[in-house]
């Protein structure tokens, strides 16, 4: 779900700031639309889908160094197409924006880079999976994206992480067809929530070894938001005991939020949660980069008997890129314990 702001990020990064989150609800001229019943095929669907308007590959990691200090790391590649086709050379209508960030309890560093498709500065290949832009890359050897390596370099930080997972990919919604509104907006959406991480992370040239867990998302669509939807709150959680949970709510200025989620058990079996099963409730607002954001949440899933509170590692985990958004590591406690990432847009 995260990354829905991609067109924004692109728009923001280089195109219009004015388009706003609602821009994602724009008509998708000539672009393909996700269809229910469509079967995702791997590794083919790890690659880019140029006939869709927007797409993203998103990795967030909850890490610890040898002294037990917590870190968050983010790596995101967005694709945005001006026309539903691929192309060679500068005529390619594909453009890319990438964000990388590193978070500690006191620091949040981020970087952004941009590229045009078609010339070799950025691109995504399916088999073997490889996504790259400048000297940032994400590649994997296995069909479930195991045997992966991810790297980003920015002026004040850099990381190289090795990722491994035994579990299969988790398809959200109806076999990967993920609805986003009552009026039919949807995307194709799958995750690899079970990455074990081993790597190195440097902040201001001080490098440390890190280990932990990471969550990878791949999502694509052409028109994922309804016109009245202005932003969303999204959670990815690694629960102690090995299960994983993904929840989001899309906020509308006309109707109740559109809520959705998946529970992925420790063996990798994914199950979509019913809408009336999920309760997301902001507990505390805080001023972040000049906006009021709900940084503490109560999360309940009735069918799982789950009632937890989510708290960010760093309440200032704000991506001050073109159009800003919150993306930061969280810890959860209550009926269950765990860690994960929280993304909030459109505030």
């Amino acid at each position: 779900m995260r990354g829905l702001f991609l067109s924004l990020a692109l728009c923001a990064a280089s195109f219009a700031h004015a388009e706003g989150f609602a821009g994602l609800g724009d008509e998708a001229r000539g672009f393909a639309e996700p269809q229910p019943g469509h079967r995702l095929v791997f590794p083919r669907d790890h690659g880019a889908h140029p006939q869709f308007r927007i797409e993203w590959w998103y990795l967030t990691a909850n890490l610890k160094d040898e002294s037990g200090k917590s870190y968050g790391a983010q790596w995101t590649l967005f694709r945005h197409a001006r026309a539903p086709q691929d192309g060679e050379g500068w005529d390619s209508p594909q453009a890319f924006v990438a964000h990388a960030a590193v978070t500690t309890d006191t620091l949040h560093l981020f970087a952004e880079t941009r590229a045009r498709g078609g010339v070799g500065q950025a691109g995504v290949e399916a088999a073997p999976f490889r996504a790259f832009i400048d000297n940032w890359s994400f590649s994997a050897t296995e069909s479930n994206l195991s045997g992966a390596s991810i790297a980003a370099v920015a002026p004040r930080f850099r990381y190289t992480l090795a990722l491994a997972a035994d579990e299969p990919l988790a398809l959200h919604g109806e076999a990967g067809f993920s609805r986003k509104s009552e009026s039919g907006q949807a995307s194709y959406y799958y995750s690899q929530p079970f990455f074990r991480v081993d790597g190195a992370l440097a902040i201001d040239a001080a490098e440390r070894k890190v280990t932990g867990r990471a969550w990878m998302d791949h999502e694509w669509s052409s028109r994922p938001l309804a016109a009245d939807q202005k932003g969303w709150d999204w959670f990815s959680l690694h629960l102690d005991g090995g299960a994983a949970l993904m929840l989001f709510r899309l906020r509308s200025d006309k109707t109740l939020p559109f809520v959705s989620g998946s529970f992925i058990s420790a063996d990798g079996a994914a199950r979509a949660l019913a809408r009336d099963d999920i309760f997301l409730e902001p507990l505390e607002q805080s001023l972040v980069s000049g906006r009021l954001l709900p940084i503490r949440w109560r999360v309940r899933v009735a069918s799982l008997r789950l009632d937890i509170e989510a708290k960010p590692l760093n309440s200032q985990s704000f991506m001050g890129t073109g159009l800003g958004y919150f993306e930061g590591p969280i810890a959860v406690f209550g009926s269950h314990r765990g860690e994960g990432y929280l993304e909030m847009t459109g505030y």
């Binding site: 728009c11 990064a13 280089s14 195109f15 219009a16 700031h17 004015a18 388009e19 001006r82 500068w90 005529d91 209508p93 453009a95 941009r114 590229a115 045009r116 500065q121």
Partner: peptide, 26 residues
């Protein structure tokens, strides 16, 4: 020029929004 990678001082003077899409073409 390539507007997405231009230095900030230059990209600030380039068209934005829909106008940038027009600039990139076709």
């Amino acid at each position: 020029v390539e507007p997405l990678t231009l230095p900030k001082i230059s990209s600030a003077k380039m068209p934005t929004g829909e106008a940038l899409n027009d600039f990139l073409g076709p």
